[in-house]
């Protein structure tokens, strides 16, 4: 069965660390970083990239539209 693997790219400088994407992720991939960006926000990042399926739920709820989603089928 073909497996789907995804990845997200977060625009760190535009992320405001609102955390809305964290509960939206069905596979608990996203967490907020300990580091902060130029504005002092803890930006979102992929904490366990293996779980990402590229469903784009996080990008859809992101109020600032900073998440870009990629997806591939791996056999």
């Amino acid at each position: 069965m073909a497996k789907v693997q995804g990845a997200i790219v977060v625009d760190r400088e535009k992320c405001k660390g609102c955390e809305v994407c964290v509960p939206a992720c069905p596979t608990h991939v996203i967490e907020l970083a300990k580091e902060v960006n130029g504005k002092g926000y803890h930006y979102a990042y992929m904490a366990n990239p293996d779980g990402c399926t590229g469903c784009s739920n996080c990008a859809i709820v992101c109020p600032d539209g900073v998440i870009t989603v990629y997806r591939v089928k791996t056999s």
């Binding site: 995804g6 990845a7 109020p63 989603v69 997806r71």
Partner: peptide, 26 residues
């Protein structure tokens, strides 16, 4: 390897400008 243009699923529409939104987080 996944982050390539051909694998793109979702990105912010070009009808939104690149300005940072002035709204509060969330």
């Amino acid at each position: 390897e996944i982050i390539k243009d051909e694998n793109l699923v979702y990105k912010k529409t070009s009808l939104m400008t690149s300005n940072v939104l002035s709204y509060c987080p969330g």
